[in-house]
Design a protein around this nucleic acid. Structure first.
Lengths: 266, 266
DNA sequence: TTGAATAGTCACCCGTTTAATCACAAAAAG
DNA sequence: CTTTTTGTGATTAAACGGGTGACTATTCAA
């Protein structure tokens, strides 16, 4: 990646982390300046000089820059490692506060008429990863997992797989041999296999550009299927639980197609 | 804390984490509803019904809620642990990307005329903590530290103190006996003492409400002094390096006042 | 000392975002 | 066949953020 792109990337990420554009620009500007006045910073970061002062004040309050109160004032960025650590601390604190606040509250009564046909949709690689890990942890009998992309075989996933109870069968499939090898060494207890769902790929590929992401079946009663946008890495999943669930139809189809039969000749 | 306050707190924190007000309200609303339609959620969360849909879409894209595409649609929040973990992952990723981006860039040349009189100001408890830890790690001869408030004795600080090189003297002071005891057990290698800066407290207390936070002197050439707003827990520090520094005057005053003489009779 | 340049603070403008409401068509429910 | 409910879209008003210029104080160099 080009250096100017790195600068742009840094600015963008800082904004995602909650900074305004000027604040972000000033911070990356200072990061390559070691120390500077408002004027120099204004030129380097392409921020109107008169606005540098506001931006710096905010950054200082967040612990990202230091100010020398001389005349003229000098600014400098906190060392990178310190800055990232500070940001981490900030967010860790917020997430913790959120967790505490919500977990003293949860749940108002409900007039439950569970409509049995529960199929839920969710998005986001992180969220689906976490749900996958959680489901595997809670498995009591059998885990069937098909992984469609190398990037989905994360550390957390591996440790979840290795931590399942003793009586739980592990059946893991991959789309390529190299991926299967990785799985074999990472999760020795699992029975692995390749393919078994070419039909699924074929059927899908005609319609749109989505690739199969994950396919997870827990205790034959809970299922999660995700697809992966090849370019954007965006992941979307559907998720269902309960035997009577409509999604189990998919599971049956899979079994009929011979995917699950791999298990018996084991 | 009251439960309604918890709700408010959660909403506020979610906004700090980047959500809009409606999104935040909808999420905490769903968090206590287990599952709900737009109408119920609208009443519970005090969000206009017609706007619930937009908010939910954003939340779904972030992996914080699941949608059941039935009619009417049903929404539900991801379990709290999964949600916080997802948020964590999100921010960890961003901070990492920031670090990588800035790492490849740093430093444009500089016409250095170091004005020797460097006194820098910084704010924020996290940032000052990180700076403190860093300075202690880099110490080569002597660390003099005075801690003004119990909350400042963090794990990171303790491990930094215990990790200093062999030839480095550790001199740690506290304002109260109980704090001194904590330090003794946490950092056995240190020489501890109490007080030695009543004069500083006195002088300050007349003017404003700030209490002394940290006081750190590294190798007799780098110094950091912080004050703590008693109510807001807001911390502000000044920081200087180099022998010729004006701040060293303060260090001399401290020595003259007998603070540092504790070291000699050791 | 004086004039020019620099430093710093304010106040203002304008486009975008976002909270908030309304109008309307499709779909359920009675 | 009404009457709610549900979902989408357009619209308004206020808040926010980016962008610019006026103005004063300070510094520096004639």
């Amino acid at each position: 990646m080009n250096m100017n792109d790195s600068l742009e990337e840094a600015i963008e990420v800082l904004q995602q982390l909650g900074l305004k554009e000027y604040e972000a620009r000033c911070f990356v500007g200072l990061s390559r300046l070691h120390t500077g006045t408002a004027k120099r910073l204004s030129e380097m970061a392409e921020v109107p000089r008169t606005r540098v002062y506001d931006a710096i004040r905010v950054l200082e309050a967040q612990g990202l820059v230091e100010i020398q109160h001389s005349s003229p004032q000098q600014f400098r960025a906190v060392p990178l490692d310190e800055a990232t650590e500070t940001l981490r601390d900030q967010y860790e604190g917020r997430v913790e506060r959120l967790h505490d606040a919500l977990d003293t509250v949860e749940m108002v009564e409900q007039d439950d008429e569970t409509p049995v046909q529960q199929v839920w949709a969710m998005s986001g690689q992180d969220a689906i990863k976490n749900r996958t890990d959680q489901l595997i942890e809670d498995a009591s009998e059998e885990v069937v997992l098909v992984i469609g992309d190398e990037s989905l075989l994360t550390e957390d996933l591996v440790s979840s797989l290795n931590d399942v109870g003793n009586g739980v069968d592990l059946l893991i499939g991959a789309l390529t041999e190299s991926l299967q090898d990785q799985i074999k060494t990472a999760v020795p207890d699992a029975t692995t296999f390749i393919s078994g769902l070419e039909w699924l790929q074929g059927e899908d590929a005609t319609e749109n550009e989505t690739a199969i992401g994950r396919l997870l079946l827990i205790d034959r009663s809970t299922i999660l299927v995700s697809s992966l946008m090849p370019d954007t890495k965006d992941e979307q999943a559907i998720f269902g639980e309960g035997f009577g669930n409509g999604l189990v139809v998919i599971a049956r189809r899979l079994m009929a197609q011979g995917l699950l039969t791999v298990r018996d000749p084991k």
